[in-house]
Amino acid sequence: MKAVVIDQFGGPEVLRYRDVPDPSLSPASVLVEVRAAGVNRGDLQVRAGEFAVEEQPLPLIVGWEVAGVVKAVGDLVQDARQGDRVVAIIPSGGYAELATAIAQAVVPIPQSLSFEEAAGIPIVFMTAWFALVKKAALRSGETALVQAAGSGVGMAGVQIAKHVGARVIATAGSDEKLARARELGAGETINYRTTDFAEAVTTITGGRGVDVVLESVGGRTLVRSIELLASGGRLVSVGNSSREPVSIDAALLVERDVSLAGLYLGNELLRSGAIEEFQKVVDLCGRGELKVIVDRVLPLAEAAAAHAILADRANFGKVILRP
Rank of each mutant, 00 (worst) to 15 (best):
A36F: 10
A136L: 10
D79Q: 15
A311V: 04
P108L: 14
V213A: 08
A261I: 07
Q279W: 03
G232Y: 09
L310F: 12
G38K: 02
D295C: 10
N240T: 00
A131N: 09
G207P: 07
G120N: 04
V292Y: 03
I6K: 06
A261N: 12
A166T: 14
I248N: 01
F9Y: 07
V213E: 06
R287H: 06
G152Y: 09
A170Y: 14
I320F: 12
I248V: 06
A251V: 00
C285F: 00
G206P: 11
L145K: 11
I169A: 05
A301C: 11
L269Q: 02
Q159K: 12
G141M: 13
K135C: 11
V34C: 08
T171S: 13
R243E: 13
L229F: 02
A103H: 07
P57I: 03
V153R: 10
V254L: 07
S216V: 05
R220Y: 06
A311I: 03
Q78S: 15
S29C: 05
V153N: 08
L76M: 13
N315E: 14
V201L: 09
K162F: 03
S237C: 05
L132N: 05
G288C: 08
E33N: 15
A170N: 11
A170G: 13
T171L: 11
G232I: 01
N191V: 10
A148F: 13
A36Q: 08
E54Y: 10
E33Q: 14
A103S: 07
Q111K: 14
G83C: 15
A303W: 10
F278E: 00
W64P: 00
R16Y: 00
I90L: 01
N240I: 00
S237W: 01
D312G: 13
V5E: 02
Q8L: 00
G141D: 09
C285A: 00
G232A: 05
L321Q: 13
M126W: 01
A230E: 08
L252K: 09
I169L: 06
D283H: 06
A306F: 13
L76K: 13
D7Y: 06
K71E: 12
K177M: 12
T202V: 02
R271V: 04
A105V: 00
Q56W: 15
V201F: 09
I190Q: 10
A80W: 15
G273C: 04
V62I: 15
K134I: 13
A80R: 15
K280G: 03
S140L: 10
A314Y: 07
L265G: 01
K177Y: 11
A161W: 15
A72Y: 08
A118M: 13
V32Y: 03
P27N: 08
S92V: 02
E142D: 11
P12F: 03
L44N: 00
I90F: 02
T194N: 04
R208K: 14
I6H: 03
P12Y: 04
F130W: 07
L229A: 01
T195C: 14
V236Y: 10
L310M: 11
A144E: 08
A172T: 10
A119L: 04
E117M: 09
E188R: 15
A170M: 12
K177A: 08
S225Q: 03
